[in-house]
């Protein structure tokens, strides 16, 4: 089953965030709970954990600004 990785809402006013760094490469195996990427809001940097295990495929790019809800990758 494919699970989507979408940009989370990180606070009351944060509508867009910067994808800072992917911790895994395309095709690598991730486990639930692994930190898979970091994002920066206007206030802080947040580590995001995988919510499922499987093969990781990023579609978002490091350094790019995304809106809350944007699809940036999958785990399948």
């Amino acid at each position: 089953m494919v699970s989507e990785i979408r940009i989370p809402k990180l606070g009351m006013s944060a509508l867009e965030v910067t994808l800072l760094e992917w911790m895994f490469g395309d095709g690598e195996t991730v486990s639930e709970g692994d930190i898979i990427y970091t994002v920066a809001t206007d206030k802080t940097t947040v580590e995001i954990e995988a919510q499922s295990s499987g093969i990781f495929h990023p579609s978002g790019s490091e350094g790019e600004v995304y809106q809350v809800g944007d699809l940036i990758g999958t785990i399948e």
């Binding site: 699970s3 989507e4 990785i5 979408r6 940009i7 989370p8 809402k9 606070g11 009351m12 995001i48 954990e49 919510q51 809350v68 809800g69 944007d70």
Partner: peptide
Amino acid sequence: RSLLMQGKVAVM
């Protein structure tokens, strides 16, 4: 927290 992390829901 899991739904928020996945970006499946976007609320406070």
